[in-house]
Design a protein around this nucleic acid. Sequence first.
DNA 1: CTGAAAGCGCTAACAC
DNA 2: GTGTTAGCGCTTTCAG
Lengths: 337, 337
Amino acid sequence: MGSRVTIRDVAAVAEVSPATVSRVLNADERVAPELRERVLAAVERLGYRPNSQARSLRTQATRVIGLIISDIQNPFFTSLVRGVEDAAQASGYSVVLANSDEDLGKEQQYLRVAAAEQMAGVILSPASSSRTRIGELVHEEIPVVTIDRRIAADVDSVAVDNVAGARQAVEHLLQTGARRVGVIAGPEDVSTAADRLEGYRAALRAAGLAVDPELIVRGDFRIDGGHRAAARLLDRPDRPDALFAANNLMLIGTLDAMAERGLTAPADLLLAGFDEMSWAGFAPPLTLVEQPTYEIGRLATQMLLRRIAGGTAAAEHVVLEATLKVRASSDLVRRAV
Amino acid sequence: MGSRVTIRDVAAVAEVSPATVSRVLNADERVAPELRERVLAAVERLGYRPNSQARSLRTQATRVIGLIISDIQNPFFTSLVRGVEDAAQASGYSVVLANSDEDLGKEQQYLRVAAAEQMAGVILSPASSSRTRIGELVHEEIPVVTIDRRIAADVDSVAVDNVAGARQAVEHLLQTGARRVGVIAGPEDVSTAADRLEGYRAALRAAGLAVDPELIVRGDFRIDGGHRAAARLLDRPDRPDALFAANNLMLIGTLDAMAERGLTAPADLLLAGFDEMSWAGFAPPLTLVEQPTYEIGRLATQMLLRRIAGGTAAAEHVVLEATLKVRASSDLVRRAV
DNA sequence: CTGAAAGCGCTAACAC
DNA sequence: GTGTTAGCGCTTTCAG
């Protein structure tokens, strides 16, 4: 290894003790301005960088937080990651990112790594609301905040009001004239899927319409699953006059299935989805329930840092608003223009 | 912190010295089978997990490799990441992932973190071939392997033959009947961009055609840039009869620009691109130069691990093959079927 | 306000 | 073969 410069070297050059160097570097107030100057000069001159391993070993605390995400390929997470990184960095923490890929086994493995590395805390978008196990972290007293989705365990969470968001979207479809709204729902054991389905049901009930179980098809929150689910709905003899896809990737799959059948929105049926999709620019302008992703990441990090600092209050559940953006895919008027 | 069990606790329970426990855990052969048994039993019973910080501090070597990627949102990287993780895990290393977002500043920051954390090695998809600075890593003697793109510095790399790949694609377009092939090229200072542009030129030269600089427009390897670049080409009075987009996201932008103008491939013009795009299923089937992404990640990791183990030979440059997959977007015959 | 000394948990020499 | 000892680089009492 590159004959690294240690705190002793700095101390020698500055003609002080290692303890004083440590104090300066840790913003300990009670150190003479003159010595502080000398230390900082020596640090600068030698290009000294504290060894984080040694520091962690001594203080029994790392300054890294783990961010375990359920599908890194989903653009939904990109700006969320940025929110986490910005907030973490502002407090001197670094972030390590992992992708569970909606796979419980991988998720488990990353949680284990987080425990073994004694990370300061973990932000988790759980692969399952009932089967994700955070026991190892709890055992090591490592705080956890879930994002986007919740889990059974009693931990902090940050998410949007998925019920209200979905309900808005479906109510909008109904107001625009839809009578038979099909839904491409998410997997059984993911909280966002359950909530969005609940919002769908609520909208129908509010409009005095019956909930037809035939119009509810589950996908896996990915493109393929959305494609298959949409195909089933589209191939029904009594085809729905509107579709609501419970996340962005399944909406892509839905568009795919529609294209195969020569169907377009809003001409052949109305279409709405969830999550931002500006990256799919060549698709028709889509009506979407959009989430404040950056904000979710930022808030989750702040909550986590508060826990790390020692908060032991009851679990907090922050619920942000999701907002419906109406665009051409569900808007007969706008389309006519 | 959760009153962690240390090597001394294990030693006490097994009635041996800490050194013996350490030997057992590090697969040191010369330890009596009986003691080994006792140690393993104690480890099991106490649920002992070695403290990686302490180990690193002592051995001056972490078992973590950094993976810094230029655009995490690009699906190109998803399977590559998997290749890295699989290979790393097989050798007992863990991977931390970071996203530079094509931003030199962020990249710099992550490289700094990698140096500070004394990572065992770094796999890097550099944001720039000339301006990416790996000096800090070199100074700490941390090995680096670049993937996808190369940089000026003398480090190992794994990439495909971008010149040949692009050349194949453009030759195919010419064979299918194109006479004026426009190219949406990548940014000036990225090696893949330069290579793919070179392949484009080579194909034209081989066909005895002049290279018209008006038909070369640069994008930024992202959707928006591709959109703008394609728009410029499509709005020319003498519109190209084929387009080659130098990466997947710019191909999306190109499709977008075509859709705006009511153009489709292959009817109005032939279209080819680079990188896998199965995630954009609802687009027309696209002719693409595809890369063995998983393999790139796996090989890069193996090279890195070899360096970590102490290889000091000259830098190695692995070049894999990229293969052209002809699909409907450039195939008038297939389309007619 | 500053320094000396101890020790975080582990491994590698060195004895036995 | 196994145990004892020292020390990786840092922070934090405890004296002064």
